[in-house]
C-alpha cells in the first residue's frame, strides 16, 4: 500500500505467478519468463484479424499501429529504465523527416527509408543519451524537453529543406520492396506497419527478457544498488536510449510513408505528452502497455473528437488528472486482474 511498493509494483513483471525462482536454475527462470502466454497469441491474432475483419478502418488501424510502436519505444526507456522523457517526439520527428526527405530526393523504396530513418534517429539518440546520464528526474525532463525543442526549432527554421511550418508535402513512396503498392484505403499501409511493429516487438521482447533487460530493471528500481552489484549503469542507459530512439525513428518513418506527408506538428510537445499518456493508459513495463494504450487512446480520441471536435483536449486532460488521482497502478492492476480472471475461467 505504501508508495514505495506501488512504485516497484509497476516494474514487476506481469502475468502468471512465476513459481519459485530460487529453486530453478537462472537459465530456466529466464526462459520461463519469456515463454509466450495465450493472451499474447490472442492479441496478435486480433491485430491480424482486423486486417480482414475491418476493411474500412485500415487508416485508423494504421495510426494505432504506428502510435503503438512509438509508445513501445517510450516504454523501453520509461518502463524498463525509469527515465521520464518529455521529448521523445524528437526522434519520431527525425525519423519522419529523414524518411520524407529520402523519398523526395530519389530513394523511394520504403524499407530503405525505414532503415535510414532508424539509423539517423539512433545516432541522435546515442549522442543525446550522454546528456541524460547526470542529474535528477527534473534535469532529465528539462534536457529531453530542450532537445525536442531544438529539433522543433530546427525543422521550423530550415524551411528550404523541411518546408517549415507548411510541412513536407508530396512524399510519394514507391512499392514496398518493389512488390506492394500503397493504396488509398490504407490496407497495404496497415499490413506494412503491423509487420514492422511485430518484428520490432519480437526484438524488444527478446531484449527485455535477456539478462540485459533484467539489469535495466535493476537499474530502474535502485541505481545505487545496481551499481554496487557491478552493473555499469551509464553504458546500459546509453544503449537502451539509443534503441528507443531507433524505434521512435522507425515509427516516424512509417508515419511519413503511410500518410505521405510530414507536418511540423510531429515535433510538438503534445506528441511527447500523448505518448506518455498512451503508455500510462496501457501500463508501463510489460511491452504490451504501449500497444493496448495505443488502441484505447486512438479509440478514445476518435470518439471524443466526434462528440466535441474542438475540445477533446479537455476530456483528455480530465482523464489524465483522474487517472493519476485514482492511482494508475491500481487501475492497471484491476484491469489486469479482471482479464486474468476471465482467461482463468475459460481455461
Amino acid at each position: 500500500m505504501s508508495d514505495a511498493s506501488t512504485l516497484n509494483g509497476a516494474a514487476a513483471p506481469s502475468g502468471t505467478p512465476s513459481g519459485t525462482p530460487a529453486s530453478t536454475a537462472p537459465r530456466d527462470f529466464l526462459i520461463g519468463k519469456s515463454r509466450w502466454k495465450p493472451a499474447e497469441f490472442a492479441f496478435w491474432a486480433v491485430a491480424v484479424g482486423a486486417l480482414f475483419a475491418l476493411p474500412d478502418r485500415h487508416l485508423l488501424l494504421n495510426e494505432i499501429a504506428i502510435l503503438g510502436l512509438f509508445t513501445l519505444s517510450l516504454d523501453l526507456i520509461l518502463g524498463f529504465a525509469g527515465i521520464v522523457s518529455l521529448g521523445h517526439a524528437a526522434f519520431l520527428g527525425i525519423g519522419a523527416y529523414a524518411a520524407g526527405l529520402l523519398t523526395k530526393h530519389g530513394v523511394s523504396e520504403p524499407l530503405t527509408g525505414l532503415l535510414a530513418a532508424g539509423a539517423l534517429a539512433g545516432a541522435v539518440g546515442f549522442l543525446s543519451s550522454f546528456l541524460i546520464l547526470r542529474g535528477t528526474d527534473l534535469t532529465r525532463l528539462m534536457v529531453t524537453l530542450g532537445v525536442a525543442l531544438i529539433f522543433h526549432e530546427l525543422a521550423n527554421r530550415l524551411d528550404w529543406i523541411t518546408g517549415g511550418a507548411d510541412g513536407l508535402l508530396g512524399v510519394a513512396p514507391g512499392p514496398i520492396a518493389g512488390l506492394f503498392e500503397f493504396d488509398i484505403f490504407g490496407t497495404t499501409a496497415y499490413a506494412y506497419s503491423l509487420a514492422v511493429l511485430f518484428v520490432l516487438f519480437l526484438l524488444a521482447r527478446r531484449i527485455v527478457h535477456s539478462p540485459f533487460g533484467l539489469s535495466l530493471r535493476a537499474l530502474k528500481d535502485n541505481r545505487l544498488r545496481a551499481g554496487s552489484l557491478g552493473i555499469a549503469s551509464a553504458r546500459r542507459i546509453v544503449a537502451v536510449y539509443t534503441l528507443a530512439a531507433v524505434y521512435a525513428g522507425i515509427a516516424g518513418a512509417l508515419l511519413t510513408q503511410t500518410t505521405q506527408f510530414v507536418s511540423l506538428e510531429i515535433l510538438d510537445f503534445a506528441r511527447s505528452a500523448d505518448a506518455l499518456l498512451v503508455l500510462v493508459i496501457g501500463g508501463t513495463g510489460y511491452l504490451y502497455g504501449g500497444l493496448v494504450g495505443a488502441v484505447a487512446f486512438t479509440l478514445l480520441k476518435d470518439g471524443l473528437s466526434a462528440i466535441t471536435p474542438a475540445y477533446w483536449l479537455f476530456w483528455m486532460g480530465l482523464f489524465l488528472v483522474v487517472l493519476v488521482l485514482v492511482g494508475r497502478d491500481r487501475m492497471v492492476e484491476r484491469v489486469r486482474g479482471l482479464l486474468a480472471r476471465a482467461v482463468g475461467r475459460r481455461a
Binding site: 521520464v84 528526474d137 525532463l141 506518455l276 475540445y311 483536449l313 479537455f314 483528455m316 482523464f319 487517472l323
Partner: peptide
C-alpha cells in the same frame, strides 16, 4: 515525478481547452 508530470500536463490540457 512521473505521476506529477502526468497530472500537471492533464491540468494544462484542461485549462487550454
Amino acid at each position: 515525478h512521473l505521476d506529477q508530470v502526468l497530472f500537471s500536463i492533464g491540468i494544462v490540457f484542461m485549462s487550454i481547452a
